[in-house]
């Protein structure tokens, strides 16, 4: 079992809901401080985005975050090399689109992730049908590939993607792209329930979580939440790493109360 999965299972099994905030690598000068602030605020892992020019699963906020990072000269190599010196103890999961590892070469990308202390990867435009080459490149490296489950995935697809997923299963709360939403819909409980029937991997829900209320609502039927747009908006608006951390601490309290 990979480091990421072991860590998340232990925390989940101890009765804790998992909290995984997201940051766009290179969004600001001090984006590594944002990760440190997440850890201090009680995050259980951090999703680090390697920005891509054409993020089709992302709404306006994360597009803007990616654009800002790219304008600052961010590349896959700058993100991964800056992570190398990072002194946090919670696992890091990279999230990016297929062309980024494809261009670098899957194998090379995996090696760079490992050298940067990354323990998981999320590539939303690589469904399991397209995953063989990537899985082969990962081999037995300590890099868990996290698969996304959609509210409209059939039971058959859920079984297959769950079987290929490592670390956790990323449950998508909505039909649609990333972005803040005022409420968590009925799909969340339905999808979390369906996935939990198939697997004992942690099931963590993301997309649309924008407040302590929505975090608590999505964490209740699942093992935890991923939060992205709400924090990226805060940073795009000039918020500091500490403010991002304070927001994550609010989310922590909310899901601990579930």
């Amino acid at each position: 079992m990979g480091t990421l999965e072991k860590h998340l299972r232990e925390r989940r099994d101890s009765g804790r809901k998992l909290l995984m905030p997201y940051v766009t690598g290179g969004i600001t000068d001090d984006w590594l401080d944002v990760i440190r602030a997440y850890e201090d605020a009680g995050a259980d892992g951090v999703e680090v985005n390697i920005p891509f020019s054409d993020p089709v699963m992302d709404g306006p906020t994360i597009q803007a975050a990616s654009d800002q990072a790219l304008r600052r000269g961010t590349t896959p190599r700058t993100v991964l090399s800056e992570l190398r010196g990072l002194d946090v103890s919670i696992p890091l999961i990279v999230m990016t689109y297929a062309n980024i590892p494809f261009r670098m070469g899957y194998r090379r990308f995996v090696e760079e992730c490992i050298q940067s202390g990354v323990h998981g990867a999320i590539i939303p435009d690589v469904p399991y049908e397209e995953m063989d080459a990537w899985e082969e490149a990962v081999g037995d490296a300590d890099l868990d590939t996290v698969m996304l489950a959609s509210p409209i995935s059939s039971d058959e697809r859920l079984a297959k993607l769950t079987a290929r997923s490592r670390g956790f299963v990323y449950g998508v709360n909505v039909l649609g792209v990333t972005g803040e939403r005022s409420e968590v819909g009925t799909w969340t409980a339905d999808l979390a329930g369906r996935v939990k029937q198939i697997t004992d991997l942690p099931v963590v829900m993301g997309f649309g979580i924008s407040s302590p209320e929505t975090a608590a609502a999505a964490a209740a039927p699942s093992d935890g939440v991923i939060v992205a747009s709400a924090i990226m908006r805060l940073l795009l608006d000039g918020g500091s790493a500490l403010e991002a951390g304070a927001f994550v601490a609010d989310l922590r309290r909310a899901i601990d109360g579930v």
Partner: peptide, 11 residues
């Protein structure tokens, strides 16, 4: 070729 789309669109 291939079908590099998010899970929501595979179906």
């Amino acid at each position: 070729g291939g079908q590099f789309v998010p899970e929501t669109l595979v179906g």
